[in-house]
């Protein structure tokens, strides 16, 4: 009973946050709404006893992806009014695409789901079952090879990103703390003897 209540409460928050993402005028608010949506769906996953996925969703999406998003949104000077200019022109195309997706989903859910156990009662596992452990077992046995390859792919991405962005240009102004500490008064201040000017 309580879980049903939690499910509807969280789903309401999730839907409201999702609507918030696309209606918020300020892109920073939109990003924050998206974070709320991620957290709400993470808790929904917890209700399904998928605790590993829930934590990964928070760690990866909220912790890394959305922080990056916020950085980009705050650093780039995005002019919202110019972005909204073409809205009416593109709205029909968007509506058509959205309509097609709704129809497809409706078709799959109502007509093609005959043989599938959609809506069947889910059987909860006993308390000793750990989805983290089960995922780990599959990842490190059956999918060990692709898993390690994905790791190499990430390493490659790091190397390539550093290669393409880090530059040692001559004449680059960099702080040298040691030089700053070693500095003497005589390096910076020059005493000049001047005759006082007479009126």
């Amino acid at each position: 009973m309580f879980t049903t209540f939690l499910f509807y409460a969280l789903s309401t928050v999730l839907l409201a946050a999702a609507i918030g993402v696309i209606t918020a005028r300020n892109p920073v608010y939109a990003a924050l709404f998206l974070i709320l949506a991620f957290v709400a769906s993470a808790v929904l996953w917890l209700l399904l006893e998928a605790e590993f996925l829930a934590i990964v969703l928070v760690l990866v999406y909220v912790g890394a992806v959305m922080v990056l998003f916020l950085f980009v949104v705050m650093m780039l000077d995005i002019n919202v009014t110019t972005m909204r200019e073409g809205f009416l022109r593109y709205a029909p195309v968007g509506a058509i695409v959205a309509g097609i997706i709704v129809l497809e989903l409706a078709y799959v859910i109502w007509f093609r789901s005959d043989g599938l156990p959609v809506g069947a009662q889910l059987v909860p596992r006993d308390g000793a079952y750990s989805s983290t452990e089960e995922l780990g077992k599959v990842l490190y046995t059956q999918y060990l090879y692709p898993f390690e390859l994905a790791g190499m792919l990430l390493l490659l991405a790091i190397v390539a990103a550093i290669l393409l962005t880090m530059r040692h240009r001559p004449g680059l102004k960099v702080q040298d703390v040691a030089e700053q500490v070693k500095v003497q008064r005589g390096d910076r201040v020059r005493m000049v003897q001047m005759k006082s000017e007479s009126e």
Partner: peptide, 22 residues
Amino acid sequence: LVSYLGLELLSLSLYAMVAFNR
């Protein structure tokens, strides 16, 4: 799956190598 990962390893390295002379 492995074919795809191998292909991405190959392609990502090539993209970065083409942009090598910045």
